[in-house]
């Protein structure tokens, strides 16, 4: 249903203003040395001239703390109160990067699988993504090696591409995107002819050929390539927490007196505690085994079971790894070796 319109640079802030009259608007905001998706009330608050926010957009659908239900203990037992899905807000995220938006599809596959997660589903349904195509990239970006691109529309409801005049090409992609247009139809102009979106996109060279990636990863399972990773990776979990798709979680009960709530919190398969059994046995004993799991899950198990990969090539894990575990380099190496 893709429709192409033009949104002038003057209209963009007006659009944000218009949307924020009825919904909460979020976008990349710079705070000291950190760029993260934050609530905004006007377009001036948006950060400019950066590659990608430090944290991904997954928190809109899979927040770092998710209350699942609350409970009260009384003399007859425990009374459980479900959370009220009606309280999940309608939100619009502006300036989400195409890789983060594409990551939503993978998250959806995870959370809709056996059984489907109503909280996640509702959050996703109530969030509108107005993507912004990338006009700059860095060496860590490798979306193109995994089928994505700096102008990929996947996961976005509207995708904006900034042109050299500062005006935007607006691709209206879904009914949620249409709804945004109907809020302020006058701001969107009709266009004629090809606006040559490609001209305004960053150049992200392909790092490797992914055609046989799954088999190659499987073939590497028992090789000694993971020995060096075992030594270097310190199991800090930064990679998993910044990743737009990593969805390992921990479940905790927070109790005060006779009341409490059960929460779902971000966790990481790279942490030794994640797989430690109460018996003391740990099926993924070494950091190498845990790092291998990270790769296997993203590039073998997820494609096998969910038909999506667990990675969109945003490069965050590698940018933020304190010991420079570079995932694109590892994939490339595994492809060459196997």
């Amino acid at each position: 249903m893709s429709k192409i319109k033009k949104l002038s640079k003057e209209s963009f802030p007006l659009l944000i203003k218009k949307i924020s009259e009825t919904q909460h608007v979020y976008g990349p905001v710079s705070q000291g040395k950190r760029i993260s998706y934050q609530r905004i009330s006007s377009a001036d608050e948006l950060a400019s001239d950066f590659i990608i926010p430090d944290m991904s957009a997954k928190s809109f659908v899979f927040p770092k703390i998710e209350k699942l239900f609350s409970y009260t203990k009384n003399k007859d037992g425990v009374e459980v109160q479900d959370i009220n899905l009606d309280n999940i807000p309608h939100r619009v995220v502006v300036g989400i990067r195409p890789c983060d938006a594409a990551g939503m599809e993978s998250l959806k596959a995870i959370f809709s699988w056996d059984p489907s997660d109503p909280i996640f589903e509702t959050r996703l349904k109530r969030t509108t993504f107005i993507g912004l195509a990338c006009n700059q990239a860095d060496d860590y970006c490798f979306c193109t090696s995994l089928g994505g691109s700096p102008g990929d529309t996947k996961g976005s409801d509207i995708l904006l591409t900034k042109t050299d005049t500062g005006d935007y090409i607006a691709e209206i992609l879904t009914s949620k995107g249409e709804k945004i247009v109907t809020l302020a139809p006058d701001l969107f102009q009709d266009v004629e002819g090809d606006l040559q979106k490609e001209k305004f996109l960053a150049n992200v060279p392909k790092r490797f050929d992914n055609s046989d990636l799954q088999n190659k990863i499987n073939a590497a399972f028992n090789t000694d390539v993971f020995d060096e990773y075992a030594m270097r990776c310190m199991g800090c979990s930064a990679c998993a927490f910044v990743c737009p798709i990593c969805a390992c979680f921990d479940i905790q009960d927070e109790t005060k007196g006779s009341k409490g709530q059960r929460v779902r919190l971000w966790d990481s398969c790279g942490a030794k505690l994640f797989t430690l059994h109460t018996s003391g046995h740990n099926p993924r004993e070494t950091q190498g085994a845990r790092w291998r799991q990270r790769l296997m899950h993203k590039f073998s198990y997820m494609p096998e079971r969910l038909e999506v990969r667990g990675c969109v090539g945003c490069g965050r894990c590698s940018r933020r790894c304190p010991v420079d575990m570079n995932i694109a380099e590892s994939l490339n190496q595994l492809i060459i070796d196997n």
Partner: peptide, 12 residues
């Protein structure tokens, strides 16, 4: 507010 309790600080 921004801390995500990844414990990278501790591991490093």
């Amino acid at each position: 507010e921004s801390c995500i309790k990844c414990y990278a600080c501790r591991q490093a």
